[in-house]
């Protein structure tokens, strides 16, 4: 996966609680066996009418927010279905980080596994970033992951927390499976003891 160091670009406000993965990636885009073409499906019903025209009232279709790199979202973003297609589609759309207050668990794991940075902030800090994102003259941000800061222009830097292991994986773009397989011996011996103690699982 692509490492995340320092990324600059427009932020888009997408308020509203509980934006679910059905809305992020509708079912008709789940029929593939690869990851291709999911950028087109992302927020499909919000971005396009039934006949395929861009909805002018949707923020991502408006000039001030084109080429968005960051979403600024409401609570519990990514709830619902486990479909990782939602994360793949967001990345294909160019989104590199999502700033909110809380994220659904499976979505957060999927994001971490694909290098999509999730930033959780207290509601009052988020509200300020929402205001910045809503203003096309001010909505370019830089996110510096090694330094763990959001840099608005202008404005003071906003620090954010990120779990150390997740940060390391994102910064280095690590293949988690390869790392775990370095522990294959430990897994094998754990497994042998586990199945011996619970022989009905063997």
């Amino acid at each position: 996966m692509q490492p995340f160091l320092r990324v600059t670009g427009p932020a888009v406000p997408l308020p509203g609680a509980n934006i679910d993965t059905d809305v992020i990636m509708p079912k008709q885009f789940l029929k593939g066996i690869d990851r291709a073409g999911l950028g087109d499906g992302t927020f499909f019903d919000l971005r396009f009418t039934g006949s395929g025209e861009a909805r002018a009232d949707f923020v991502l279709n408006q000039p001030g927010w084109a080429d968005a790199r960051f979403l600024v979202v409401g609570p519990n973003f990514g709830c619902g279905s486990s479909r990782e297609h939602a994360v793949w589609g967001l990345l294909q759309l160019g989104i590199r980080a999502i700033i909110g207050t809380s994220f659904a668990g499976i979505f957060a794991d999927n994001a971490a596994n694909n290098g999509l940075l999730l930033i959780g902030l207290p509601p009052e800090v988020l509200a300020e970033i929402q205001r910045v994102a809503a203003d096309p003259d001010r909505n370019r941000l830089t996110i510096d992951l090694p330094a763990q800061v959001i840099i608005p222009q202008p404005g003071p830097e906003i620090p954010f927390p990120v779990p150390p292991l997740r940060k390391a994986a994102l910064v280095r773009g690590l293949d988690a499976i390869g790392t775990t397989l370095d522990d294959a011996e430990a897994i094998r011996s754990f497994e042998a003891a586990h199945l011996a103690a619970h022989p009905w699982l063997a």
Binding site: S82, R83, G105, I106, D109, I177, T180, L181
Partner: peptide, 23 residues
Amino acid sequence: GFGIGTSDIEHYLATQTLVYRRQ
């Protein structure tokens, strides 16, 4: 029981484990 995404399915299939965060 808990749900996982496709990257973690691959991780499970290859290693019988998951990198798991205690809830």
